[in-house]
C-alpha cells in the first residue's frame, strides 16, 4: 500500500512541474431544497425498506444542500454540506457519529496536472452505482435497494486519466465506506473505467475491494445510461457484492432498469424496475426483492414536482399489512417537491 501511495505522489510531483497556471473561476454556489408527502398503502412507515422518504402520512423534510466550488488555475475544491433528515440522521456517517447537525456530501480538492490527468483527495460521493443522496441527482424520489445497500460516499485519493472523450480510467485508495476518517486504515482499492461507445451512451464499470459493509468485501458494479432519442433515455445499474467472510450477512446482487420518456417539454415519465437479492450467509437464508416504481418529473424552472407510486414484493413477507400482519407486498405513493439552485 505504501509503495502504491509513494508511486502516486511521485507521479503527481513530476506532472506538477509541467503544470501551468490558468485563469481563476468565480466561486460557484449551488444547491437544493426538498420536501415530500408520503402515504403508505398499509399505513405503516416500516414498509419502506430503502433509504429516505421514511414518514407516512406526513409532509416531511428532505434536506437543504449547499455546495461551493472554486477553481484557481489547475486547482479546485468542492465543499458540499446538507442539513435535514435526508442529509443528517438518514445518512450513514451522521448515524455512526451519533447524529451530528449536518452531513458532508463532498469535501475534496482536485488538481488537473494536465488536460488528461487529474488527482482528487478528500471525501466524495461514491463512484459506485446509479443513484445518489441528493434528490437533484436522481430521477426517482425514493431510492433503489442497490443504492441503499451499496456505499454512499468514499474518502480517499484517486487519480483519473482521460484517454479521450470516450475513455477514461480512475484508480484510487479509499477508507472503508461512508466514514470521514478510516477505522480500518486506508484499506480499500477502487477503480472505474468509463467508456462512451456512441454519442449519448456512457458506461461506467466500477470495482471496490477492501473494508466495507460487513467487513472486507468486493463490489463490482455496472452503471450505464443511453440517451437513445431526444425523448427516450434508458439507464441500467447492476452490481454484485461479496463479503469475504461468507457467514456475515450483507452480500448481495441485483439489477435495476431505468427507462424514461419525455411526454412533454416539462414532463418526463420514468419507470424503475429492480431485482435485488441478499445472498445466504451462514444460517441466514437468501431473500429477494422485486420493486417497480413509476415516477413523473414535472419541471418549472428550478422546481421539480415528483409524484411517484412504488410497489415492492418479497415472498418472505418482510412487509406489513394495515393490521400489522406480515405481507409479501408493500406499496406507497409520494409527492415530492425539489428546488435546485
Amino acid at each position: 500500500m505504501k509503495k502504491l501511495l509513494t508511486a502516486i505522489f511521485a507521479m503527481a510531483s513530476i506532472t506538477c512541474a509541467l503544470a501551468q497556471e490558468t485563469t481563476t473561476s468565480p466561486l460557484e454556489i449551488s444547491g437544493s431544497v426538498d420536501t415530500y408527502f408520503k402515504y403508505d398503502f398499509a399505513k405503516n412507515p416500516l414498509n419502506g425498506k430503502t433509504s429516505f422518504v421514511t414518514d407516512h402520512n406526513s409532509v416531511s423534510l428532505g434536506m437543504i444542500d449547499i455546495a461551493l466550488k472554486k477553481k484557481t488555475g489547475k486547482a479546485s475544491f468542492v465543499g458540499e454540506l446538507s442539513f435535514g433528515p435526508r442529509g443528517q440522521s438518514q445518512s450513514i456517517p451522521d448515524a455512526a457519529a451519533g447524529g451530528s447537525s449536518f452531513n458532508i456530501q463532498n469535501l475534496y480538492v482536485n488538481y488537473d496536472f494536465t488536460d488528461q490527468f487529474s488527482m482528487t483527495a478528500g471525501y466524495m460521493g461514491t463512484f459506485i452505482g446509479y443513484e445518489v443522496i441528493s434528490p437533484v441527482g436522481n430521477f426517482n424520489y425514493s431510492t433503489s435497494y442497490l443504492f441503499t445497500n451499496g456505499p454512499f460516499q468514499n474518502a480517499g485519493i484517486k487519480a483519473t486519466y482521460k484517454f479521450s472523450d470516450k475513455v477514461s480510467l480512475m484508480a484510487g485508495l479509499f477508507n472503508d465506506w461512508n466514514v470521514y476518517s478510516a477505522s480500518r486504515g486506508v484499506s480499500a482499492i477502487g477503480g472505474q473505467l468509463m467508456v462512451a461507445p456512441v454519442e449519448g451512451w456512457t458506461a461506467y464499470i466500477n470495482a471496490l475491494s477492501g473494508a466495507g459493509f460487513g467487513g472486507y468485501g468486493t463490489i463490482i458494479d455496472l452503471t450505464t445510461s443511453y440517451q437513445i432519442t431526444e425523448k427516450f433515455k434508458l439507464g441500467l445499474n447492476a452490481a454484485n457484492y461479496d463479503i469475504k467472510d461468507s457467514s456475515v450477512p450483507g452480500s448481495y446482487a441485483g439489477a435495476a432498469l431505468y427507462p424514461q420518456f419525455a411526454v412533454l417539454d416539462a414532463v418526463t415519465l420514468g419507470l424503475r424496475g429492480e431485482y435485488f437479492k441478499f445472498k445466504a450467509a451462514g444460517a441466514v437464508p437468501a431473500t429477494a426483492f422485486t420493486a417497480v416504481t413509476l415516477t413523473a418529473n414535472i419541471k418549472s424552472g428550478g422546481l421539480t414536482f415528483i409524484p411517484e407510486v412504488r410497489l415492492d414484493h418479497n415472498s418472505d413477507k418482510p412487509f406489513f399489512k394495515a393490521g400489522g400482519a406480515a405481507a409479501p407486498n408493500g406499496g406507497q405513493f409520494s409527492l415530492a417537491a425539489v428546488y435546485a439552485f
Binding site: 449551488s30 455546495a67 458540499e80 456530501q105 461514491t126 445518489v132 441527482g137 454519442e199 449519448g200
Partner: peptide, 17 residues
C-alpha cells in the same frame, strides 16, 4: 447542465434543443 455526484456541473444529455 446538472450537478453530478461530485458537485460538478455536467451536461444532462448529448442531444441539444
Amino acid at each position: 447542465y446538472q450537478r453530478d455526484r461530485y458537485g460538478n456541473f455536467v451536461p444532462t444529455t448529448k442531444i441539444g434543443v
